[in-house]
């Protein structure tokens, strides 16, 4: 038996909106640690890892580890029917082939349940090694989204370079080229508006902008984003989910053939 009650149901709505473009079908894993997911996009170029820790739920019952295969588009369709202020409860029976999403309005005057069919998904689980990154950039998530959107109107790829001068996002296309440099800026009024660059070694990597733009669908989840870079490693673009966990996107770089 599984029963997870999330008072801030809008978080789950936002999580689905952030990953459904990248991943079609995925197994949600439920254990005493929390509600998690790991899945690759269909081209096996990007990977998404989600964790919603059990402590973040008002009620968390998971009698035994369960893996539930869901079509994310269908799940998103159901969660769209929940109000932004609704409490969402996820329920499933051991060995069952459905999951139920229950939505309660804040005043308890409307209670809905939506039952969705589960599916068998044969997906491989990847081991993500602990890595020391050469550089970690923390910046406002809206700023990062703006940069990715702006650059994708000029080119298809972005070169992200971190030096002691700052972080540079560059692109080139048929009509010309563009460079955007963000300097470390910690003297802002609010910490979430700061750009913080933690660099051990200079790093420069090239990525497909199409994927970066897809990751920025997670912007509503967090005011800040952290971008961890090492030469010859996938970049990690992380959006922390307040009090609960994170959505991390890993993207393999473009490399010399």
């Amino acid at each position: 038996m599984l029963e997870l009650r999330l008072v801030q149901g809008s978080l789950l709505k936002k999580v689905l909106e952030s990953i459904k473009e990248l991943v079609t079908d995925a197994n949600f894993d439920c254990s005493s640690t929390g509600f998690s997911l790991q899945a690759m996009d269909s081209s096996h170029v990007a990977l998404v890892a989600l964790l919603l820790r059990s402590e973040g739920f008002e009620h968390y019952r998971c009698d035994r580890n369960m893996s539930m295969g869901m079509n994310l588009n269908n799940m998103a369709k159901m969660l769209k029917c929940a109000g932004n202020d609704d409490i969402i409860t996820i329920k499933a029976d051991d060995g069952g082939d459905t999951v139920t999403f229950m939505f309660e309005s804040p005043t308890q005057d409307k209670i809905s349940d939506f039952e969705m069919k589960l599916m068998d998904i044969d997906s491989e689980h990847l081991g993500i090694p602990e890595a020391e990154y050469h550089a970690i950039v923390k910046m406002p998530s809206s700023e990062f989204a703006r940069i990715c959107r702006d650059l994708s109107s000029i080119g298809d790829t972005v070169v992200i370079s971190v030096t002691k001068e700052g972080v540079k996002f560059s692109t080139k296309g048929d009509i010309g080229s563009a460079n955007i440099v963000c300097r470390q800026n910690t003297s802002v009024d609010k910490p979430e508006e700061a750009t913080v660059i933690d660099m051990n070694e200079p790093v420069s990597l090239t990525f497909a902008l199409r994927y970066m733009n897809s990751f920025t669908k997670a912007t509503p989840l967090s005011n800040t984003v952290s971008i961890s870079l090492s030469n010859e490693l996938p970049v990690v673009v992380e959006y922390k989910i307040a009090e609960m966990g994170y959505v991390r996107f890993y993207l393999a770089p473009k490399i010399e053939e």
Partner: peptide, 14 residues
Amino acid sequence: LKAQARIARYFGSC
């Protein structure tokens, strides 16, 4: 010219 690497190049199955 650069080619797009895949995730499997860096992370193995577990």
